[in-house]
Design a protein around this nucleic acid. Structure first.
Lengths: 185, 185
DNA sequence: GTCTATACTCGGATAGAC
DNA sequence: GTCTATCCGAGTATAGAC
């Protein structure tokens, strides 16, 4: 999707359909033949995220160690955070989601899949004694998603967010004394 | 600043100068008499943030307990995070900063003041043994700022991020075993 | 200093030929 | 299905009266 790069680099409003058409080697009219309007062209960029999110969760939900699985999922979500244009895309997404209810629904579905998957892993971590039982699984999952967003905001070329991300997540999930070796009596 | 509310609610591009003029009870021409162009009108909203940031840091930099001071500063910065329009404003800011170098400079100065203030508190916390000495003060300060920004992006009306924020920061800063009572031999 | 009126540009979307 | 040509609205910024 070439349009995605342009939207990320320049923003939605400052990227004309003519520009996108040119980048793809066609005319504006042809773009409007395939997409109802400019908004739906933008949405298309995010529609591929849902199956990717489902696959990601499916790949980790049965992992032996839930905490490791959580870190792996978050790493995957933060993978693009080193790319500064990915940060631009996140911002455009947040911005457009307020104006385009259909876009909100699209990204909402993806976010729900991720949140529920993470929440399931958190619940299991609590059961196994590796995660503080005082935490609410769903609320915590939402917070971890926000932390991933923070890695995008902190994006600097060449700087990998993995270290901060891991330390942050482990520090947040761990039971008070950092103790995690006693499932139950 | 009435313009700020409109920019926050609708975004920069979707807010016309005519709209701002109407809200203030004047004409577009008068707005352009006081502001060079639309971009400088937007910048004006953020110019007041620098003195506020300086005052905030000055108020806490000498506090007896650096970790408490850090939490207080971050709480102040995250105070508006429950207000969805503040979230909109941050998004517009991030978005516009990429297009307007002068705006980038304006907010850069404010961010630097905050980062340096936080870094000073972190350094002191390390010296006093309350914060993990393996952390780099400046990098950590930048990361904490990113986490605060993330609380804005994740804003839900009525939900204050204080609890998550505190737990996250304490979990991140604490020395490995949660031990913090031995400054040095 | 503030207004009305408007010049000018740009971009989304469409018409209609091929 | 893809093109060229174009309509149309919107919005920044300015001219010039008062």
């Amino acid at each position: 999707m070439e349009a995605g790069r342009l939207f990320a680099a320049q923003g939605y409003d400052r990227t004309s359909v003519a520009e996108v058409a040119k980048a793809v080697g066609t005319s504006p009219a042809s773009v409007f033949y395939y997409f109802e309007d400019k908004a739906s062209l933008f949405r298309a960029v995010f529609e591929r995220d849902l199956p990717a999110a489902e696959a990601l969760i499916a790949r980790h939900v049965e992992a032996p160690d839930p905490v490791t699985a959580i870190l792996d999922v978050l790493d995957a979500l933060a993978r693009d955070a080193a790319d500064p244009s990915a940060s631009g895309m996140l911002i455009e997404l947040l911005r457009r989601a307020g104006d385009d209810p259909e876009l909100l629904a699209v990204v909402g579905r993806t976010a729900n899949v991720l949140r529920e998957g993470l929440a399931a892993l958190i619940s299991r971590g609590i059961t196994e004694g590796a995660i503080d039982p005082d935490l609410d699984a769903t609320e915590t999952a939402a917070w971890l998603q926000a932390i991933v967003d923070a890695t995008y905001l902190n994006a600097r070329p060449g700087h990998s967010p993995h270290i901060e991300l891991h330390r942050t997540v482990l520090g947040y999930l761990n039971p008070p004394q950092g103790r995690q070796e006693e499932p139950n009596g």
